[in-house]
């Protein structure tokens, strides 16, 4: 094994510190408690929880979006990415429980009936692609510097997640919270791309 092989091994990432997992866990549990208990002060508990879990999932995923947009296939993904990506996903699972289980009485067909295929399809797709992507990020040793089909996979999973959030937060214009979070998320990704570009410029200097 050469030196480069070591640097592609995620588990050997020198930046891995307990604070990382503690902070992301704290953010996740805070968000969960906000959705569960904050709802009791609103006039529709299930509705609020469905939304709050979507908002916080987007917020948790936003740092992961940033890291990916800036470092994917460049400096490489890192632990922050994997942690935010994982907790964002966990939150969307809770969202799924409320959205499908409570609001749609576990009747997926009704989601398609109500929202049409173009909207409902990607939402269900996301549940699958995100889960697989996280699974791979924990199984594969090359998750930080993926190559071959896995590299393509990561890119596709990223795009599906980002576009889902983009459409449901910004295009649907459900409420002011979604709008603000959607704008924030988008600006962060744009900033990441600008930095990616400037990282590249500097590399050439």
């Amino acid at each position: 094994m050469s030196d480069t092989a070591v640097s592609t091994d995620g588990n050997a990432d020198p930046a891995h510190r307990p604070e990382q997992i503690i902070l992301t866990l704290l953010l996740f549990s805070g968000s969960a408690a906000f959705a569960v208990f904050g709802a009791l002060a609103t006039d529709n508990v299930d509705f609020f929880r469905t939304h709050a879990t979507a908002w916080t999932s987007a917020l948790l995923a936003t740092p992961a979006f940033y890291i990916f947009a800036r470092h994917f296939a460049r400096a490489g993904l890192n632990h922050w990415w994997r942690l935010f990506w994982t907790f964002g996903w966990l939150m969307i699972v809770i969202h799924f429980y409320f959205g499908l289980g409570i609001m749609h009485f576990w009747d997926p067909v009704s989601v398609f009936q109500r929202q049409g295929f173009a909207v409902a399809g990607p939402i269900f797709l996301l549940q699958v692609t995100w889960l697989i992507d996280i699974g791979l990020a924990f199984i594969r040793r090359d998750w930080r510097f993926s190559t071959g089909w896995y590299k393509w996979w990561q890119l596709v999973a990223y795009l599906i997640a980002f576009l889902n959030f983009f459409v449901s937060l910004l295009v649907f214009q459900n409420d002011i919270q979604s709008l603000v979070i959607g704008i924030l998320m988008t600006l962060v990704v744009v900033a990441a791309l600008v930095q990616r570009w400037s990282d590249g410029e500097h590399a050439h200097e």
């Binding site: 307990p18 604070e19 503690i22 902070l23 866990l25 704290l26 996740f28 549990s29 805070g30 969960a32 408690a33 959705a35 569960v36 208990f37």
Partner: peptide, 20 residues
């Protein structure tokens, strides 16, 4: 601080799950 954060997280998480 780390321990406190872990405890707070777990309390919030367990409370939320138990409540649900």
């Amino acid at each position: 601080v780390n321990w406190a954060a872990v405890v707070v997280s777990l309390v919030l998480l367990i409370a939320s799950v138990a409540w649900l």
